[in-house]
Design a protein around this nucleic acid. Structure first.
Lengths: 203, 203
DNA sequence: GTCTATATTAGGATAGAC
DNA sequence: GTCTATCCTAATATAGAC
């Protein structure tokens, strides 16, 4: 095992992750990344040649981390419905750890869909999708569900949008003397599980 | 009624709307806006002084349009639950007409929350919120609902995220031989109404 | 009011010393 | 490997003719 990743490289990647996730590829400033990493701009180029390559590394790390979390779906020892509940929980866990990830992805994909497809391709083919798993469950007559794609979209919406639109929800909550944040974590999760139970009928 | 808005000003605002909605404040290029408006850059500055001011006008228009659509909530002649269903429908109508609006708002708010609160302030105080209406319904013992803020967040998530993440959903759908787009409009809407009926109990 | 031409600035990238 | 100083380009902004 060679030690090709120097300390500095790691520090830069950590800084770049934060800045790119907040401002996106075009909004992020090399100066900002350098400042956060405690080095200067020239060194960024020394390690990563240019902005695009640095971004690619960050993006690739994000994707790996995401798909890694989704591996529950493959656990054949669990009933499908349990896997779906786990999927939702892992999804929320992931977004709790990386609250900027969803908006980060959306920004980049909406700017350049073809590029995204290209980058994501390798991960997609070696990883399971929730929809494939559900279709499999239907075929085995283990579960019943009206429309797998619609279910998927609804479920992901419920899990993700609260993180994406958190700043907006906080403003709305404040105007209505309500709360929105980590405090609501538990009831938020249970509303998602309730949705799943309403939609999936075990046979 | 004075005719202060010249034809050119309108043309510029239309062009700016499209470009800003797609690329955001920092991503949008003045050249791009000028091209789309069929004029040159200098004229943009003549009319709007600088990029920020032009952006402000576009943003202000977007907010007005949004709140205008939400006026159903104030119709006291309707039962609360009908107003909630109408709210969801109008919300989806609005997003269908301006599919970029949600992501546009989120991008800007996530970049500068304080600025957003400032800009939105005037609209908020003269407009109803879904939560206020729901709270009113609970007080009048017309409806029952577990947690108004959570309900609001879930509902808005179901309506909005499909538009925000449309490019991602299209990729996922393609990988699973499923469809995701306008074709699914009807079943998408009914899944939202079904959610409302599951959560709100009329008394 | 609209244009062309130009100034200004910001930010990514590179050269070269140490 | 890391820095300072500098280059280059793209993008905003302005001057001034018509």
């Amino acid at each position: 095992m060679k030690l090709k990743d120097s300390k500095t490289e790691e520090v830069i990647l950590d800084a770049a992750k934060v800045v790119f996730m907040e401002y996106g590829l075009y909004g992020a400033r090399m100066q900002q990344i350098a400042d956060r990493a405690g080095i200067n701009k020239a060194l960024l180029h020394y390690y990563f040649r240019n902005k695009e390559r640095l971004f690619d590394r960050v993006f690739e790390n994000a994707l790996s981390r995401y798909f890694q979390n989704m591996e529950v779906l493959l656990d054949e020892s669990l009933p499908i419905i349990d896997r779906v509940h786990s999927y939702a929980d892992r999804f929320i866990d992931f977004l709790t750890e990386y609250p900027q990830m969803a908006i980060f992805l959306i920004k980049e994909v909406s700017l350049n869909q073809a590029l995204f497809e290209e980058k994501v391709k390798s991960h997609i083919k070696e990883n399971p999708s929730l929809i494939a798993v559900i279709n499999h469950g239907i075929q085995r007559e283990e579960i019943q569900i009206i429309d797998p794609m619609l279910f998927f979209v609804n479920l992901v919406s419920l899990c993700t949008y609260p993180f994406v639109a958190r700043p907006i929800f906080k403003v709305v909550a404040a105007k209505n003397d309500a709360l929105w944040g980590v405090e609501q974590e538990i009831s938020f999760r249970s509303s998602v599980h309730e949705f799943i139970n309403n939609k999936i009928k075990p046979l």
